[in-house]
């Protein structure tokens, strides 16, 4: 796998975005047709080889304050964090997001604050970042599929934005909505999920100091595949709660229904807290494989309750049956 830094390439050498996007679309369509005809799909064209990080501008973020929220574990390599992704708006394969990305129009980026707030308002990304100094936080990330990473995120506490948003007394939940533009996100042309992607948190979960609005990782602005330019990180919940490319933040009185709940309420609940004792109906959640560790002989490790953040977040759920509210 090659990570090509855009600095090595002169602008004239880069194929215009529309042209390569079109080529890619053609290749994908043609490829899918061929594969279907032959009945051999992933065996021949396997994601891992297709993973070539596209020429996206890598931009350093400054200044960044080092936060005390950091787990003392080996970081997952940058290459893995940026090529092994679930971001269905860019395709359902793990390497689809990194190979299809680079198409998001991130400037300007405006987030709409709606619902149970004193008055609805919009905030540009630059202004949002003035609400609080950017912090680097090293969190574990546990995917519902049974793998995990350790990622140095850059962002601001979600609580700071909530304070600025001034929710009313009726606000009990926060709903997040992603961008869903088929011109920028090829995966949205396929109805795998009910677009746009939505997620939600209880207001106290959203206000929890661990909840982070991330704009970067490894000291740089988020690449498209990681949810540029603004995403949610809730480290004690399964990764899919970390909604990407956020456009709308809506405060509600009723519990919002997330995309995954709509897709399969039996398998994905509103809370989706990491819990080794409550299995996914189709697979175990007792263990996980840490990405970028040990290669082929990388043994599974035990999954921790609340992904190891139980001391900090356990009190949010006292008295709740976590088997029922999964």
């Amino acid at each position: 796998m090659i990570i090509r830094r855009s600095a090595d390439i002169t602008p004239s050498e880069i194929t215009p975005k529309e042209i390569y996007a079109e080529r890619r679309r053609f290749l994908q369509t043609a490829g899918l047709g061929l594969a279907a005809a032959a009945g051999l799909t992933s065996g021949l064209i396997h994601p891992a080889e297709a993973a070539v990080v596209q020429a996206q501008t890598r931009r350093k973020l400054t200044p960044i304050v080092k936060s005390a929220y950091r787990v003392d574990e080996k970081l997952t390599p940058y290459e893995d964090v940026t090529t092994y992704n679930n971001f269905y708006e860019f395709g359902t394969g793990k390497s689809d997001p990194s190979s299809n990305a680079g198409t998001l129009h991130k400037q300007p980026w405006t987030v709409s604050i709606e619902g149970e707030v004193k008055r609805p308002k919009k905030i540009g990304l630059e202004d949002l970042l003035k609400l609080s100094p950017m912090e680097e936080r090293i969190y574990r990330m546990r995917c519902v599929e049974g793998w995990s990473m350790v990622i140095p995120w850059v962002g601001i506490p979600l609580a700071k934005l909530i304070d600025w948003a001034e929710p009313t007394g009726n606000a009990k939940y926060v709903e997040f909505v992603s961008l869903a533009d088929p011109d920028q996100m090829p995966g949205v042309r396929v109805p795998v999920l009910d677009w746009p992607y939505t997620e939600g948190l209880r207001l106290d979960e959203a206000r929890h100091p661990l909840s982070l609005l991330a704009v970067g990782l490894y000291g740089e602005a988020l690449l498209d595949q990681n949810g540029a330019p603004l995403r949610l990180v809730v480290p004690w919940k399964y990764g899919f709660k970390g909604i990407k490319s956020i456009l709308t933040i809506r405060f509600t009185e009723k519990m919002p229904v997330s995309s995954w709940m709509r897709a399969n309420a039996h398998e994905y609940g509103f809370y989706s807290n990491v819990n080794p004792e409550v299995d996914h109906p189709r697979w175990s959640q007792a263990t996980e494989r840490r990405i970028g560790e040990g290669g082929l002989f990388n043994r599974r490790r035990k999954t921790l309750m609340f992904n190891g953040y139980g001391d900090q977040v356990g009190q949010l759920y006292t008295g709740m049956d976590l088997r029922k509210y999964f």
Partner: peptide, 28 residues
Amino acid sequence: LGFMDNLGANPVEFVIHSNGTWALTFLM
């Protein structure tokens, strides 16, 4: 790919899926 350390971010999954896919393909 294994010797080139090029089995992707999740090599175990890659190997399991590849063999499973090919078992099914040869069956077909």
